[in-house]
Design a protein around this nucleic acid. Structure first.
Length: 574
RNA sequence: GCCAACGUAGCUCAGCUGGUAGAGCAGCUCACUCGUAAUGAGCAGGUCAUCGGUUCGAAUCCGAUCGUUGGCUCCA
């Protein structure tokens, strides 16, 4: 298995070379950058005078097929730095890449037919080993990923062991796209984003709102159980507040223009923290009060560049499941640990056990004493190890104000999105001069931790939809049971049953249309309702219900029995 | 913001090289009362994203704007 993964990567990278070779043959004047393998395929970044579009793919693919038919061997050349520079004459990007190669490391080229490329390798034996590939898209991409650098054209393709495998990959992608929350959101009428209102601004429709309220109720209950108190804070605040917090210095490009209120500038909040801090400062605090855990479903607005908006996963107005923990140094270790556990359990309740964690440590430019950074980073690391969850370290990737853990989850097509985050903040307590009175009667600076478990409700809901493919479990389903009378004669019986279910707090609807039962079942299935209750003359006569699950299995039983089963299932999470 | 593609009825889409917009589903009305993934008939529904240009004539060609999608950068 390990071998074949390596082989695939080699194959994909080699396919990138073949594509670059084809581009050179077709367009001549090509500036090459790099062409690595990706998850399912490869890409190559190039600069050419012609703007490529998908219409150009067939010609490129045809040229690639020719090169593959030639069965040209990949030939490795090791050269000196000077020779390399000579070989790369005129290739500005490649020359820059060459200068990245540390002194003493071998400089290798791979030749394949008329195409020569600075490359670490390895490659397949010859181009004939490439059997299945397809170009999929073209996109702009800054050289080295820097906004200020020139933009190259990145051509993406997929590649696999055989044409058949390519088809399988394409099919998988197609299947995954059926779970796209934007598609399901439309199909199930969960939410909308409308041009008339503005991009990145979400409308929750009744069904989506129902699910959201269930999520929020659960979230509140868990927070109270875990020793949190809830806060509500304003949506706007004075410029001076944001100046003190530092947001006007460091976050201004994400904030909307101020509004004038009686001659004072007010800003819509991009974060909740300054308000929570103001609550902290409304009293003198003792070490006996700490830790204080204050949570809020706080709706914030942030300017996001137009190109980055993405369904519910990246929006301009969203509700964070935010909290701030104020804590003494003695207790910070335990506090962080319980927070990490809390976060993972929260996600688990919604069926996410495939969470990836990233630990970001101190960057070069940072505020706060180094000792505190060390303690904070250690506490984060320990929390992760004791939860035995795998994590990657992003060395120096922390914010200037503190180290953090980010929890990420993948969407339907494998893109990773940040959900929860646990961040230390050594900046705000200073800026706002936060204090507590210690056992010694002196003032001390508390630790402050920002944390979000779900991240934003919008984003969380988006990945939740994709996670379940719209087939929400009973406890989350906006409509749990659809009652389907077989003919209009059972309407009354159906209403009776529905009323009894509703009395027991089940979310239920009756399909009252004068339709055939097949049509009613079809609709209920398309709406992804977990259960149907089918009621015909037989059921009415025997005072039973035919309970039909989403997968088509069906049993006839008394309503009480059905309710007991449904009750059990709706108490189940995960 | 940058690169590329796209935008036709509530939804999914058709509309060839410019000649004045069409289907299915959904909706409404009527008939049917039926046992497990679409009963039938009829009706209604569109300033072809917006604005401007070319043309005798633009959904179709050109430009700008808005929005969406796939990437890059950035982030919950």
């Amino acid at each position: 298995m390990g071998d074949s993964a390596l082989d695939l990567e080699r194959l994909r990278h080699s396919t990138a070379h073949v594509m670059a070779a084809a581009l050179c043959r077709l367009y001549g004047d090509v500036q090459l950058d790099i062409g690595p393998a990706t998850d399912g395929g490869f890409y190559y970044d190039v600069d050419l005078p012609k703007r490529l579009t998908p219409e150009d793919f067939p010609a490129i693919e045809a040229e690639m097929a020719k090169i593959i038919a030639e069965k040209s061997p990949f030939e490795r050349l090791e050269v000196s730095r000077d020779e390399a520079a000579e070989m790369l004459a005129g290739q500005t990007f490649k020359l820059e890449r060459l200068s990245d190669i540390p002194e003493g490391e071998p400089i290798t080229f791979y030749r394949c037919a008329d195409f020569l490329d600075l490359c670490r390798g390895p490659h397949v034996e010859n181009t004939g080993d490439i059997r299945g590939f397809k170009l999929t898209s073209v996109a702009g991409s800054y050289f080295r990923g820097h906004e200020t650098n020139p933009m190259l054209q990145r051509i993406y393709g997929i590649a696999a062991q055989s044409p058949k495998q390519v088809k399988v990959l394409l099919k998988q992608l197609e299947e995954a796209q059926k779970r796209d929350h934007r598609k399901i959101g439309k199909e199930m009428d969960l939410f909308s984003i409308q041009e008339d209102v503005g991009p990145g601004l979400v409308h929750w429709h009744p069904r989506g709102a129902r699910i959201r309220s269930i999520i929020e109720d659960f979230w509140r209950r868990e927070h109270y159980r875990s020793g949190y108190e809830l806060l509500y804070s304003p949506h706007i605040g004075r410029a001076e507040l944001w100046a003190t917090s530092g947001h006007l210095d460091f976050y201004k490009e994400n904030m909307y223009a101020p509004m004038d209120v009686d001659g004072h500038d007010y800003f819509v909040k991009p974060m909740n923290c300054p308000f929570h801090i103001q609550v902290y400062k409304s009293h003198k605090r003792s070490y006996r009060d700490l830790p204080l855990r204050w949570a809020e479903l706080g709706t914030v607005y942030r300017y996001e560049k137009s190109g980055v908006l993405h369904g519910l996963l990246r929006v301009r107005g969203f509700t964070q499941d935010d909290a701030h923990i104020f804590c003494t140094p003695e207790k910070i270790q335990d506090e962080v640990k319980t927070t990490v556990t809390f976060a993972l359990n929260m996600l688990k309740a919604f069926g996410f056990d495939n969470v990836t964690a990233y630990l970001s440590t101190r960057p070069d430019k940072a505020v706060g004493e180094e000792a505190r950074w060390d303690q904070a980073t250690t506490s984060l690391k320990d929390a992760l190890t004791s939860e035995s969850i795998a994590y990657e370290v992003d060395a120096g990737g922390g914010a200037f104000y503190g180290p953090k853990i980010d929890l990420k989850i993948k969407d339907a097509i494998g893109r990773e999105w940040q959900m929860g985050t646990i961040q230390f903040d050594f900046n705000l307590p200073e800026q706002f001069d936060l204090k507590y009175t210690g056992e010694d009667g002196c003032d001390h600076r508390p630790y402050m931790v920002h944390r979000a478990l779900l991240g934003s409700i919008e984003r969380f809901f988006g990945v939740l939809v994709e996670h379940y493919g719209g087939k929400f479990p009973m406890w989350l389903a906006p409509e749990q049971i659809k009652v389907l009378p077989i003919t209009d004669d059972q309407l009354e019986y159906a209403d009776q049953i529905a009323a009894q279910l509703r009395e027991q707090d089940f979310r239920v609807a009756v399909d009252r249309r004068s339709e055939r039962i097949g049509a009613k079942i079809r609709l209920a299935r398309n709406e992804r309702v977990p259960y149907m209750m089918i009621l015909g003359g037989n059921e009415q006569e025997s005072q039973t219900v035919a309970l039909r699950g989403r997968d088509g299995e069906q049993t006839t039983m008394a309503l009480d029995a059905a309710m007991a089963q449904l009750r059990r299932e709706s108490e189940q999470q995960g």
